[in-house]
């Protein structure tokens, strides 16, 4: 791990250049340019709002559109950067076969690139908050911490996924499907409060309710999305209780994922 950190320092300029390349490349010949970055969360927000008007999802004191948009921001970031990260090594075959630099630079750069798009979504969020006359409180200072945690979560998927993808391209194919399933298992369309209420207050699953809730929150995205909504919209601190299982997941899986990636990287050029 100290080696990894030293590498990051040493290659920070290269990562910045590669991230700039990814962004510039994506919008080079697109007329709407960077505006495409907000298209996905905004359109999903509109659809969810429409659906909500049929089925009725309780959103508490927060207007549903902004609640779901605040969920879609970390979710879209996670989803897109994880799938870009997984494909980043295979997508750079030409470089992998010619020049050596630490290979983790590819997934890391892919994830960092998406931070720029996340940043643009903050402008939309600010606009919506102004519309609903919401004022952020002091807890908004948590946002960088939550984003950093989201980046680590994404890297956990990206490292292992990118390494396996070199051997079996199935991963690149399967990931979008798995991620869209995971969206329903994360509090994106519905707030976490609903799950909490059903399981912890109403004990909907009987004796298993607590265990089921822990299982649900083992998905780090559950804690991330809820914390993000808390600090931005509800002006509350993150709910550590619902974040803890996810934190444990990442604390265990991130080092494993990274070590697997480092072990596999010496064969990338031979196999890819």
């Amino acid at each position: 791990m100290p080696v990894a950190a030293a590498n990051l320092m040493r290659y920070r300029e290269l990562m910045a250049t590669l991230a700039w390349k990814n962004i510039a490349l994506r919008y080079k010949q697109a007329y709407l340019g960077i505006a495409w970055a907000v298209l996905k969360p905004v359109s999903l927000m509109l659809i969810f709002t429409l659906v909500k008007s049929f089925v009725g999802i309780k959103s508490g004191s927060i207007p549903y559109p902004i609640l779901t948009f605040a969920a879609l921001m970390p979710w879209t970031f996670f989803q897109e950067s994880a799938s870009d990260g997984v494909n980043s090594v295979v997508g750079n075959t030409a470089l992998i076969k010619k020049i050596y630099f630490p290979r983790e630079i590819f997934p890391i750069t892919a994830v960092l690139t998406k931070l720029v798009e996340l940043g643009i979504n903050f402008i939309i969020l600010a606009g919506m908050m102004a519309w609903y006359e919401m004022v952020p409180g002091i807890y908004i200072l948590w946002v960088p911490v939550i984003i950093a945690y989201t980046v680590l979560t994404t890297l956990t998927v990206a490292f292992a996924g990118a390494a396996v993808n070199v051997y079996y391209r199935d991963v690149g194919q399967a990931l979008p499907v798995l991620l869209s399933l995971l969206m329903y298992a994360s509090p994106v369309i519905y707030p976490l409060e609903l799950v909490k209420e059903k399981l912890l207050v109403h004990q909907a699953a009987g004796d298993w309710s607590h265990a089921l809730y822990t299982l649900y929150t083992l998905n780090p995205l559950a804690g991330i999305i809820d914390a993000f909504q808390n600090v931005v919209l509800r002006n509350q601190p993150p709910d550590i209780g619902s974040m803890l299982p996810g934190l444990v997941t990442i604390a265990v899986l991130l080092p494993a994922s990274y070590l697997y990636f480092k072990r596999a990287e010496s064969y990338f050029a031979d196999v890819i």
Binding site: K21, L25, K98, Y100
Partner: peptide, 13 residues
């Protein structure tokens, strides 16, 4: 490494 120069060229740039 001047192995196959231009490995990293991006056509759109």
């Amino acid at each position: 490494p001047l192995i196959e120069v231009g490995a990293g060229f991006v056509p759109d740039f």
